[in-house]
Design a protein around this nucleic acid. Structure first.
Length: 909
RNA sequence: GGGCAGUUAGCUCAGCGGUAGAGCACUGUCCUCACACGACAGGGGUCACAGGUUCGAAUCCUGUACUGCCCACCA
């Protein structure tokens, strides 16, 4: 016998252990046959434990995997983790800081050793958490973006793109994070609006004239100015173009150039040009052959080129420059503007001119756009596809080199013999970092995964590897290919690739989804997955992002411990609408937790009403001649069938929330509240055939519902299925190994549903009357009914009076002796029938009168609405006949009801 | 500046051409022999606003106002 309330702990432990022991989630590649259903996990970074967003992401994938497995597909869900580049290196640097160490003190090799150890620990934490969540991952396929097979994939991709001329090295303006000490790609920069100022400063003419005034938000960069630009059509400055100005503080002569990019409505219409520290200025400098002067170094401090300001921080230099300019600053305005910040550490980004590696993206984006346009790739929800497309159309080159240590080292080597003169003296073989590419800027590289042999040119073997590592997203972009052994044409790759769907949050559509599409198309000529399910972010109830600093994070493990994994999963699932954020608080789990208990207890009830040992073959529906089924049976079977169809439609459209909701509503509101209550009549009786029919229907419908619910609530459904399956006549070891329910007969029947609906309305009407008049629930009433002229209703009531008796708690129900209300009775009207409940001395008839009067008002209001509609000839003429009929039926029903209530009121005196 | 979402019951959200739903919260009755993590009943919304299309609009179209997100070279 099951416990009275569902206790998740032991059940979860039992099934998790069982799945693991049986390797339930492992799939082997086959030589053909039906295509498997494959998902590769978005590999979590090895930065620590998983958060609630990971729980959402993985729950969704698990739902899809388990669903498709139940529906007969071979499924494979590949687990793995991502080395996480800057993010993970930051975590380690923080640890080092606690030991008062820097990574440079530790050294590259030792640092990487520590990273490896950390990664090992972290991976096991993550996999443990995923297992706890119930994820049906194929653990034999676990991959890591920096393990050996993945390293080969990265090398191959680099070599391929390099060979096609799509990877280039160059000195360009990049986003430099001063704290992380590395370049970032454009999409790794986040912009935020900040309060700033606009300084107007005067640059005098070299000839002693008054010159002009430039406006800037960054006065400190003036130290690196090499020109001032004005719009060629701006009359105010026409006579200055071609002249030179004297740069204050630096006493340098700089030209005034005319450039179309200058907006003469902004500021003073004159722009100071600092090519080394502003992307726009850099472009202007390219157009006018202006020199670049780097006055800010990679450490965020002013460089030697800044003269007396060298060594100052950017902020201090700004203050000092402003102070030193003195009266040459003619105006200071408030000027809010957006500032780029590092997406990992939130520090202000410094645009910096430096040597980096770039991927030309235009040629890669074109096939991706084509794939989208041709429908070979689709995002869910579709609206995300618009944003995705726009981004691809406007794509820029991708800076892939990072000046950090944790990552795939760029597979390019420089021969020290050949490059003696160009490689800076400061570089050693072991140590690098900072502005490393400057030092190898002019060197000629050789591509190789391993250290090359003797140099083809000078026969030397003294090599230095390019010190930079690749952007972590470079390897992530290869993930779906790499997990199956690409570039080797493995059996796995042939069978499992391409995958079916990628499940991820909208925040990494560009960073990751787009890159995978492009890489997949470029390297293998097909999309790595045809669908992307895009979900939102889990936020707190106030709509704020969860973050440690805000202190509003919810730990999924704690939630699972306290309320059970299934309830936790379901609480996310019911809110997982495509592309929408999920407001979440601990109390979000209350409903789902109660639901889990409801699932548990409904099964408990069914089991209590079955014999101890199941009959041979269980209680299959097909053995049951349909003649043994009564109204409620046919009704619930139809509802069940409709629910199965609904759930399938929703899951296949990735509408997980709606699918979960359909199951919830069916099980609770239909199966428990109506069907089970009605089945009790037969279960309590001795009628052999009827009892068997009720048992069969309950067992079959519940078992099937549990199977369909399994993807959402894997643990509890396994436990209950196990108890139920012999009665259902199912042999499978577990839900996971069973087949989703399929009904051979079409149970949908308008007649059945109309009859059931009428009975339900009658029951509700009687209950409402009882409740509103405070009739004690325990009191069983004698009741009489009047069916007006509807003989069908009379037959229905008499045939199924047992339903009404049971659900409305009546002792008896008989036709009223005459057309009048029996003395001392109260009234309930529904479905064209009137019910009289003699309650002399029990209820307050003043209350009854008030109640009926109120109901009458409601009815008249409704009736008026319908009558207006029906008296509209256009409606009758143009609306579908079905709608008109519906309205008429409603009108007839309401007016009959009105008449009944009026009669009753009249008889109340 | 451009794009994309959203604006529905106290709260969080579904619904997306036939006249408003759920969960939680609230009120009342009941510990009725599966479940008080429960049952039954109830209160509560001019579906942001203004036009338009339609027999009929929360639902489609146009515009407005807020809110959020994304993109963009706002010196």
């Amino acid at each position: 016998m099951l416990e009275k309330a569902y206790a998740p702990r032991s059940v979860e432990a039992k099934w998790a252990a069982l799945w693991k022991a049986k390797k339930s989630f492992h799939a082997e590649a086959k030589d053909g046959g039906e295509r498997p259903y494959v998902i590769v996990i978005p590999p979590p970074n090895v930065t620590g434990a998983l958060h609630i967003g990971h729980a959402l992401n993985n729950m969704l994938q698990d739902v899809l995997i388990r669903y498709h497995r139940l529906h007969g597909r071979v499924t494979c869900w590949v687990p793995g983790t991502d080395h996480g580049g800057i993010a993970t290196q930051s975590v380690m640097e923080k640890q080092l800081r606690a030991e008062k160490l820097t990574r440079h003190q530790v050294g590259r090799e030792k640092f990487l050793e520590r990273m490896q150890q950390w990664t090992r620990d972290c991976k096991s934490t993550i996999l443990g958490q995923l297992a706890r969540l119930g994820c049906a991952l194929d653990l034999d396929r676990e991959a890591f973006t920096m393990d050996e097979p993945r390293a080969r994939a990265v090398y191959k991709a680099f070599e391929d793109l390099w060979g096609k001329g799509l990877i280039k090295r160059g000195e360009r303006m990049v986003n430099w994070c001063v704290r992380c000490g590395t370049a970032l790609s454009d999409i790794e920069v986040e912009y935020e609006e900040r309060k700033g100022k606009l300084w107007h400063m005067r640059y005098p003419g070299s000839d002693g004239s008054e010159g002009l005034v430039v406006a800037t938000t960054r006065p400190e960069t003036m130290l690196g100015d090499t020109a001032v630009a004005v719009n060629p059509r701006d009359g105010r400055y026409a006579k200055l173009v071609g002249k030179t100005l004297t740069l204050p503080l630096m006493d340098r002569n700089i030209p005034v150039v005319a450039d179309d990019s200058v907006d003469f409505a902004f500021g003073t219409g004159a722009v100071k040009v600092t090519p080394a520290h502003d992307p726009n200025d850099f472009e202007i400098s390219q157009r006018h052959q202006l020199p670049s002067i780097k006055v800010i170094g990679p450490d965020g401090r002013m460089s030697a080129a800044a003269g007396p300001y060298a060594g100052l921080s950017r902020e201090a230099a700004r203050d000092k420059v402003v102070e030193d300019l003195g009266a040459r600053i003619e105006k200071i305005e408030d000027h809010p503007h957006s500032v780029g910040t590092c997406y990992r550490c939130n520090q202000v980004i410094e645009p910096l001119l430096s040597w980096q590696w770039f991927v030309s993206m235009k040629p890669l984006a074109e096939p991706a756009i084509k794939a989208l346009d041709e429908g070979r790739f689709k995002l869910f929800p579709e609206s995300k596809g618009i944003e995705y497309r726009n981004w691809l159309v406007g794509i820029k080159d991708w800076c892939i080199s990072r000046q950090i240590w944790w990552g795939h080292r760029i597979p390019v080597w420089y021969c020290m013999g050949c490059n003696k003169d160009v490689i800076g003296a400061g570089t050693t073989k072991e140590e690098s970092g900072g502005f490393s590419l400057h030092q190898v800027a002019g060197a000629k590289g050789v591509i190789s995964l391993e250290r090359p042999g003797n140099c083809a040119a000078c026969r030397g073997d003294d090599w230095i590897q390019d010190p930079d590592v690749l952007d972590t997203w470079f390897s992530s972009g290869l993930w779906p290919l790499a997990v199956f052994g690409w570039p080797d044409e493995t059996k796995d790759l042939k069978y499992f690739y391409p995958t079916q769907v990628l499940v991820t949050g909208y925040e990494i559509i560009y960073l990751w989804v787009a890159r995978m599409q492009m890489m997949g198309l470029e390297l293998r000529g097909e999309v790595p997955f045809p669908h992307a399910l895009i979900h939102g972010i889990v936020r707190d109830k106030a709509g704020k992002k969860m973050s440690k600093s805000l202190g509003n994070v919810i730990d999924p493990l704690v939630m699972m411990d306290k309320h059970g994994t299934d309830a936790f999963r379901f609480s996310l699932a019911v809110q997982a609408h495509l592309g929408r954020d999920i407001p979440f608080a601990e109390d979000s789990i209350t409903g789902p937790r109660n639901f889990a208990n409801k699932v548990w207890n409904s099964t408990r009830f069914v089991l209590m009403n079955l014999p101890e040992t199941p009959p041979e073959g269980g209680y299959p529906l097909d053995k049951l001649s349909h003649c043994c089924l009564e109204l409620a049976d046919k009704w619930i079977l139809a509802e069940y069938q409709a629910t199965l169809a609904e759930v399938r439609k929703r899951v296949e459209a990735y509408e997980i929330a709606q699918a979960a909701d359909a199951l919830y509503t069916f099980l609770w509101d239909k199966f428990c509240d109506w069907y089970v209550e009605l089945a009790k009549i037969r279960l309590a009786g001795i009628d052999g055939e009827g009892k068997e029919a009720a048992r069969a229907v309950m067992v079959q419908v519940l078992t099937g519902t549990l199977q369909m619910l399994h993807p959402f609530m894997p643990y509890i459904t396994e436990e209950l299925f196990e108890a139920l399956k012999p009665f259902a006549g199912i042999n499978a070891d577990s839900v996971l190994d069973s087949k989703a329910p399929a009904l051979e007969f079409d149970w949908a029947d308008p007649e059945t549903s109309a009859r059931m609906k009428a009975l339900m309305e009658m029951v509700v009407a009687i209950r409402t009357t009882r409740s509103e008049l405070n009739v004690p629930p325990k009191l069983k009433l004698k009741a009489f009914f009047q069916n007006g002229h509807d003989e069908g209703k009379k037959a229905l009531i008499q045939e199924r009076s047992d339903y009404i008796l049971h659900l409305a708690r009546l002792e008896s129900l008989a036709p009223a002796a005459d057309a009048n209300r029996p003395a001392g009775s109260v009234t309930a009207v529904a479905a064209g029938c009137t019910f009289y409940l003699p309650l002399e001395g029990v209820v307050d008839f003043q209350k009854e009168r008030a109640r009926l009067e109120k109901e009458l008002v409601d009815i008249e209001k409704q009736l008026a609405g319908i009558q207006t509609r029906l008296s509209n000839l256009d409606f009758v003429k143009r609306a579908p006949a079905e709608e008109v009929r519906k309205a008429q039926a409603q009108r007839d029903d309401l007016s009959a009801k009105k008449v009944r209530i009026r009669e009753t009121l009249a008889s109340l005196g």
